[in-house]
Design a protein around this nucleic acid. Structure first.
Lengths: 104, 104
DNA sequence: TTGACATGCAACCAAATGGTTGCATATTAG
DNA sequence: CTAATATGCAACCATTTGGTTGCATGTCAA
């Protein structure tokens, strides 16, 4: 899971995921457009996303097609964020009380 | 939002959030226990969590009490993860088809 | 076959990150 | 007042990160 969090920490990589979300199965060349950095830099980012299993790759001849894999994101939502979200109101309430308690 | 993702990228910081989730309002000293790094390192991590607004601080005399703020995590879940999660099955299906399509 | 195209690999570099240590400051206890 | 306690600030360091460039490899099209 650490790899997933680390992969999501970079704005450029989140953009790449957004673009695959908008249109799945793009090649490296396509994904390079609009990212203003070199092809190799984009390839590195995609490698990190692959490593985190957020992107799955498919070769078609000389083209490398990239597919979004939503499973790890779902796992984060389920196992980690859900934990906080479920208790959101309780935690907010505790926080509010703590801060108000000080002013008294 | 970038600050939140970056803050969540470190295992130690996630542990700190977990510990505040388990017991809210701990002091820096308390949070240092079990983390095997120096007090200053923990303080830096907490600073990053504060910066990302994931932790809110309350002074009580010479003690600094730390409170978990669940709002930014909730925002991630709502605005970003939710986007992928909602289409989880559709994306999985597309992925599967793409991979199977190759084998034919 | 040959050239163009899509991608990979590796060396290199600057900046950010995560950690340390030493010392300073503020508050509480005796 | 003085000690001890709780924390802050700043310099410093090694490693990681995000980017570059140059060149190599594999595939398609003419």
């Amino acid at each position: 899971m650490d790899a997933v969090f680390k992969a999501l920490a970079d704005e450029g990589r989140r953009t790449l995921l957004d673009r695959l979300f908008a249109r799945n199965g793009q090649t490296l060349g396509e994904l390079c457009e609009e990212m203003h950095m070199s092809r190799q830099a984009v390839a590195k980012h995609l490698g990190i996303l692959e490593e985190a299993n957020l992107v799955v790759v498919q070769w078609r001849g000389r083209e490398k097609l990239h597919y979004l894999n939503p499973v790890p994101i779902n796992e984060i939502a389920e196992r980690w964020i859900g934990k906080y979200e479920r208790n959101r109101l309780a935690a907010l309430s505790a926080l509010k009380q703590a801060l108000e308690g000080d002013k008294k």
